[in-house]
Design a protein around this nucleic acid. Sequence first.
DNA 1: CATTCATCTGAAGAACATCTGAAGATATTG
DNA 2: CAATATCTTCAGATGTTCTTCAGATGAATG
Lengths: 224, 224
Amino acid sequence: MYRILLVEDDQDIRELICSYFTRKEQGVFEVDAAADGQKGWEKAYENHYDLLLLDVMLPGQDGFSICREIRKSSDVPIMFITARASERDILNGYALGCDDYVVKPFPLPVLYQKANALIKRSKGLVRSKIFTMGSLSLNPNNGMVVSDEQEVKLTAREYGILKVLLENKGRVISREQLLDMVWGYNSGTDERVLDTHIRNLRKALGTNGKLIRTVIRRGYKIEE
Amino acid sequence: MYRILLVEDDQDIRELICSYFTRKEQGVFEVDAAADGQKGWEKAYENHYDLLLLDVMLPGQDGFSICREIRKSSDVPIMFITARASERDILNGYALGCDDYVVKPFPLPVLYQKANALIKRSKGLVRSKIFTMGSLSLNPNNGMVVSDEQEVKLTAREYGILKVLLENKGRVISREQLLDMVWGYNSGTDERVLDTHIRNLRKALGTNGKLIRTVIRRGYKIEE
DNA sequence: CATTCATCTGAAGAACATCTGAAGATATTG
DNA sequence: CAATATCTTCAGATGTTCTTCAGATGAATG
């Protein structure tokens, strides 16, 4: 499950993209949307996304300036989607560190595939899909987790948590983000469940359980 | 120095791209060219490139089939550059595992920047900006703080304060501003807490604690 | 130089976040 | 439908972080 932030002021386009991305293949993308630059920037800053889709002309803060700000602290993949097709604008986009610049109007399936390709590329998943860390590895292809040469049988939640952590090695993931990503948005789950699953996961991983670090007030991360 | 393989049958376009890529900034790209599908595939197979630029319609073997073959054994970034702009073709390209699909005609600088962005992305080189000051650094991406080659574990408040200061190097930040930014607006916190956290932060940073300067009556700043 | 105001410091307990064990609820499997 | 596995809830234990306070130190002012 990948998380996308869409910043677009046109409600029609926003809904079109949202529904296409979330419906096409169930459970692949989760799209969070913002209608103006200010909101967009805040969301991007406060949460972890796998891809940002930014319109350029926005009320409040334009897409370019959002990109500029984000790039100061993050290398999240960024695609502009905009009607501004001048060479100058496109080059400006790339100068600010975007990954792709898509000119409206475009066929939705194309945007979808571009997003797909870029996310995979950013995660180094084009070929190998196995996450490893020391003697710990997780293979999303067959759902196998191996710790110290030993296959570990994890429950769905434990697996979900470990996967998110491994996809974001070294990065602190907030409890909220973890709940969103493993349980799904507004599932309204009690935040304390996470504690329990983290504990079980640590125990299940044996020695490697130590790799999961709690960062008080900020969340969890996995690190050697 | 990055190596690019260009497979394109039109000699004019080939030379145009070649010269633009190699001249623009000396020594950034090295472009190897092939004029037909057969040659292109052989070169791609026998050498290592950082990016493949493939035309689709080619004598011998078309770009799509080259891509299909390459993807069986390699995750090298691939961009199609072609006049075939139908949605069907574009989707086909992505289905075969390309990273971008550029429709002719296109401005050369745009192609150049696209290539640039893609290569960086593929190598994980899209740098996130880390705040540094001498031997002190803070990475907002993973929340790590390093002082004198040593990771420092800061509490949430300490981290928040340091981040604000580093975001405003050399600038004096008033106590009120700091409270607003770290604690949140109208949190009504006693202003004296800040003193304590500043002290703890200084201690935690060791030698680099000295960088945090008190500016009497005006606040704090960080400066070398 | 004395006075006033601002900041620093150390210590202590309040407040908070996370962990843990156990038990009940829910889902899955044979 | 029973048996089992998994998930969630809860409440007390634990450990960490935050805040408060009061006296010490240091800087500015007239």
